[in-house]
Structures are given as structure tokens and as C-alpha cells.
Design a protein around this nucleic acid. Structure first.
Lengths: 186, 186
DNA sequence: ACCACCATGTAACAGGTTACATGATTAA
DNA sequence: TTAATCATGTAACCTGTTACATGGTGGT
């Protein structure tokens, strides 16, 4: 088995190591890269990045070297080690689960009877707008042609997700409006 | 404004208070209810439930009374207070955002070039199976007719989500298989 | 004059998990 | 006799966030 002796790493650690497979980078680079490209599925706070990196070094998953610069602050460049690659590999090979949709939004809908229907409708409309914006952003990314080998698949996933939200919010809006209409007739 | 003086509460607190609007319950009841019905979008560990409940009492959002039982352990029953309702109301009125899909799965796809394509394909198939199972579970729930006023809408959201995953994994599987085929030709 | 970028970090806190601990009742 | 249900909690740990702190460089 590949995972028998493999060290456990967290999602953030996997993400960091994953980016490091693309080349030597500083904490600053990593955080920026994560936030921009692909960043729609993973974006830790920078404080977290700077906290995790030394841990990776300590555990032997990366090495660091200081680069002295003239007109900017010095920086640490991190490089993944074979042990790091192995740990990442192990993580990648664990089958992912369909996350159980732990979504505050769902809770707000579920408890919808506790607020005015208009509030709910406005929530749904906000959601629709946000999903549409996400979709546009992803379409733009897709049009650029992904630099990453599997970037496209990731974007497509995001698009399916956005589309699902759009579909749902359209039908939900209609249904909520119908309920308001019925209430007015009583 | 409704939220001006409203106390901040977390998602878990909102969920607990939300269930308490349905009636007096114990920690045990709450945890079980959350796990079953609707539980596909929210399911904290029981230790968390037992930790949060006394805090709610301390903050004046709920009251508790002990019920002495004969053939079972005694229990605490919690009841939501007007202040609790107000806090919940405030939380419900904050517009929800489209969560940025912080999904480990996405990361695994994104870094797909680091594992054998077969591993990726197997991941995608697992996902497909899980999404299908979720879909079936939700359809069964839907057929039962929801007890909660807005239960149906919640279920529909879950169905759209499941459907999106199914659609994506079907197309992803095809594409990955094609890549493997191409690689074999080289 | 002001803002964004480069670059790293600390401190305080929030929110959550797993594993451990206990122990009677009841249905298969 | 074995397992699930009822019922509550503690301890240790992990992961993550926001806010604070510092300070030069380079463009508008």
C-alpha cells in the first residue's frame, strides 16, 4: 500500500507542497499564487502560510534558504524534498469524499419560516447574483487556457457548481414568490 | 436596522437555536436531530453540542431545566429565550455568501499530474458513486414529504449539488480515460 | 502625497475534532 | 449475549482567522 508509512498532512500543507512541486517559492509567492490562480478553492490566511512553512521544514518535507536582496526585504525560498513528495503523494491517493455540504446558507433556508419571506427571497437573489459572477469569472479563466495540466477540470467543477446554484436559486425564487402571493390572498 | 444591536452567534449556535425554536430539547436530542433530518448540511460532534449549550444559557439565549428520569440518565432540557430568538433572527438576516468551494477534492484534481491517471480516475468514480448515493438518499427524503416548512427547498439544493457532481464526474471520467488512451499510443 | 507591492512574522482567539470515561435499559 | 439507545461530559489537540507590527521601494 502506498499510504502505509506515509505521514499525515493537512489540506493546507498539501496545497503548499503541491505548489512547491512547481518550483521554489517564498511564503509570499505561495500565498499570492494560492489567492489568484485556482485560488477559488483554497485560500488560507497569510499568517497560516508563514506558520506552516517552518513546520514543513522541521518535518523534513521542505528545505529553505535565505535570499538576501538589495532593494526589497530578504526572503526565504522553500523547496520540496523527496519526503515531502512522498507525503503529498500519500495525501493525493486518499479518495476524496463528497463533502456533506456544511453550508450556512442551507441552514438559513431550512429555518426560513423564522424570517419574513421577503428576506429569504432577497437572500436567494443575492446568491443568484454571486453565483453568476463566479461563473463569469471562471469562464474568463477558462477562455485564457489553463496553464496547469488539470486546471481546466478544476474550473469545470466550479462551473458545474455555479450552474447548480443558479438553477436552484431561480426555482427557489419562483416558489418563494408564489408563497408570498398565496399569503396575500388569505 | 435589525442587526445593529444583535449579538453575534456562530453557525453551530444558530443551528442549535434554530432547532430549539421547534421545541424544548436535550443535547442528545439536538445532536441526533441534526445528524438525521436535514443533517446533510450540518453535523457537529456531540462534544461540541454539549460544550455550546451551557454557553447559550450563560449568554441568555436559552434556559435549561433538569428532568429526573427513572430508567434512563437524567437530562437537561433547553428552551430558547426571546433574546435567543433575536440573536437567531439577526443571524438569519445576514445575507449568505456563495462559499468559495474550499474543497480538498478540487485540490486533488488540480494536482492531478502528480499521481497516476488511474488514481485520478478511481477518485472520480468514487465521487460519482457517492454523489449518486446522496442523490438517492435525498430523493427518498423528498418522497416522504418534508415535515419542516422549508425542508423541501433544502433538499432540492442538495439534489442540485449531487446532480452537478454527477455531471462533472461523468465528463471528467471520459476526459481522463481519453488522456490515458493517448498516453498509451505514444 | 498616497497607495500598492514586497516580505515576514506574532498574539489572541474562535471553532472544531477525536478519544476517553461512565453506566443503565432494552430489543434481537 | 451482543449491540444499540439513552445521556452527559472532559482533555488534548488541530486548524484556522483577524488584528497588530515593521519598513523600504516604486508608480501616479
Amino acid at each position: 500500500m502506498a499510504s502505509s508509512g506515509a505521514a499525515q498532512i493537512s489540506v493546507t500543507e498539501a496545497a503548499l507542497l503541491g505548489l512547491l512541486t512547481r518550483g521554489e517559492m517564498s511564503g509570499y509567492d505561495l500565498q499570492r499564487t494560492a489567492e489568484r490562480s485556482g485560488g477559488f478553492f483554497w485560500a488560507p490566511a497569510k499568517s497560516r502560510v508563514y506558520a506552516v512553512l517552518p513546520q514543513l521544514v522541521e518535518r523534513g518535507f521542505a528545505t529553505s534558504r535565505e535570499v538576501v536582496q538589495e532593494h526589497r526585504p530578504n526572503k526565504q525560498l522553500y523547496r520540496i524534498t523527496p519526503a515531502g513528495r512522498a507525503a503529498l503523494q500519500g495525501w493525493l491517493e486518499v479518495p476524496p469524499g463528497v463533502e456533506p455540504e456544511r453550508n450556512p446558507l442551507l441552514l438559513k433556508i431550512f429555518l426560513g419560516d423564522l424570517v419574513e419571506p421577503e428576506v429569504l427571497i432577497s437572500h436567494v437573489r443575492t446568491l443568484h447574483a454571486e453565483a453568476t459572477a463566479l461563473k463569469r469569472r471562471l469562464e474568463a479563466l477558462e477562455a485564457n487556457g489553463a496553464a496547469e495540466p488539470y486546471g481546466e477540470l478544476t474550473i469545470k467543477f466550479g462551473l458545474e457548481w455555479a450552474q447548480a446554484v443558479i438553477r436552484w436559486s431561480r426555482s427557489a425564487e419562483k416558489e418563494l414568490e408564489a408563497r408570498v402571493g398565496q399569503a396575500a390572498l388569505r
